[in-house]
């Protein structure tokens, strides 16, 4: 019996017995069986169509890799998308230092058909600060070499920077930011903030408590004085 026929059967039975208590029980029973079989089929479908899945959504996050088959140093890579383009950004070496030559590689392919972007890409850089001036500098403009945009850099100071890649397609501007860490910037910031906030809380609580407890202390002192 196919599912449509079964559903009709359930409906007919339900209609026949709708008025009586027995009818309700029968309806429940058949509905239960029908739904149970439906669930079973859905489960089977789930298992039959077990497509290999990719895990851990990684777009936009830096990842580090090492290719032992070549002489290239470890690289840092970020994959992301903007508008109609899927963009891959790689930094060589993965951990560039101040005064050391480094390189950014960028690939941009259309999401819909995989065609590589072949116009000009401009690279800019600015400090990665939460609050501050947008003192960005242009690193250079590049044309593709075998679909890859290569931009060299040398930084004189350690720090966290943002590399901005800008290009235009179909009259629309595309601007996308990527992180770049030069050297090992001082990491005391979070500890300093945490310690500062904790000290502030503890001192604040202490002051409030002193103020709250002062009347009680004074009252006790008065009582002791009068008791004497």
């Amino acid at each position: 019996m196919n599912s449509v026929a079964r559903q009709k059967n359930i409906k007919t039975l339900a209609a026949k017995n709708a008025k009586g208590a027995t009818g309700k029980i029968c309806f429940t029973l058949y509905a239960a069986k029908g739904l149970f079989l439906l669930c079973g089929r859905l489960l089977t479908l789930f298992l039959v169509f077990t497509i290999p899945a990719q895990a851990h959504h990684v777009l936009g996050r830096p990842a580090y890799s090492l290719n032992e088959d070549s002489n290239t140093p470890p690289s840092m890579q970020v994959e992301t998308q903007i508008g109609n383009y899927f963009v891959t950004y790689m930094v060589f070496p993965a951990f560039p230092k101040a005064g050391e030559r480094g390189r950014v590689n960028l690939y941009a392919t259309r999401i819909d058909n995989g065609a590589a972007y072949n116009g000009e890409v401009q690279f800019k850089v600015r400090d990665d600060v939460l609050f501050g001036d947008d003192n960005s500098e242009t690193l250079g403009s590049q044309l593709p070499d075998d679909n890859v945009y290569r931009q060299g850099f040398v930084f004189s100071n350690d720090g966290d920077y943002i590399i901005t890649a800008e290009f235009t397609d179909g009259g629309e501007p595309y601007i996308i930011d990527f992180p770049l860490r030069i050297g090992s910037p001082a990491s005391v910031g979070p500890i300093g903030i945490a310690v500062g906030v904790i000290v502030l809380i503890l001192v604040g609580v202490n002051l409030v408590q002193r103020r709250r407890l002062l009347p009680a202390k004074l009252r006790n002192a008065h009582e002791e004085m009068s008791g004497r």
């Binding site: 936009g60 992301t80 903007i82 930011d177």
Partner: peptide, 8 residues
Amino acid sequence: IGDSGRLL
């Protein structure tokens, strides 16, 4: 929605 970067 015009999201880019980390697609947050």
